[in-house]
Amino acid sequence: MTLSFKGYLLLNGFLLCFISFNNVLNFNLIDLTLILSILLYSIKWNESEWLVPFLLFAWGIFQDILLGMNLGYSGSIFLFFYVLSQITSINGLFEQQKIKFIIFIIALLILFIFKNLFIYFNYQLNYLSVGELSAFLIMVLLYPPLNLMIIYSQKKYEEIR
């Protein structure tokens, strides 16, 4: 997706709105950071949009300040899924939805294991719980409808342009 000035405004506005939802929506099983990551993964980015990763990094810092996380947490998750999106489109896998879905599950699993190992070694805590597993499954279930929504919106956006 090649972004015009309006497109950049739209993207930043969308990111701001989504991050602001953290103020209001406080669910135990639904992680808004991961939902935003699904959306970032579902978008087909243009290879020459070099500004987007910097924007995602900055919005990650913004979210970390709002949530009180250590700086770098949200940014690294956003960028991780952005890179995956780029890798799938460079290798021609973007249109193959089944493979894309499998890659998403593997990526989510890697993130999930990494997070739990980090908490285990850093805090000596076993964070793994039914709630955590349910949150993982909910993200997997949310992927198909969100992906469809983004594909549809992106097609409409390209048509309008």
């Binding site: 980015w45 290879e47 020459s48 949009e49 070099w50 990763p53 910097f54 995602l56 990094f57 990650g60 770098g72 947490y73 940014g75 690294s76 960028l79 991780f80 952005y82 890179v83 780029q86 890798i87 460079i90």
Partner: peptide
């Protein structure tokens, strides 16, 4: 570059 830039930013984060 489209992969290297975000990967660099991930490492930095």
């Amino acid at each position: 570059l489209s992969i290297l830039i975000p990967v660099g930013l991930i490492i930095f984060s």
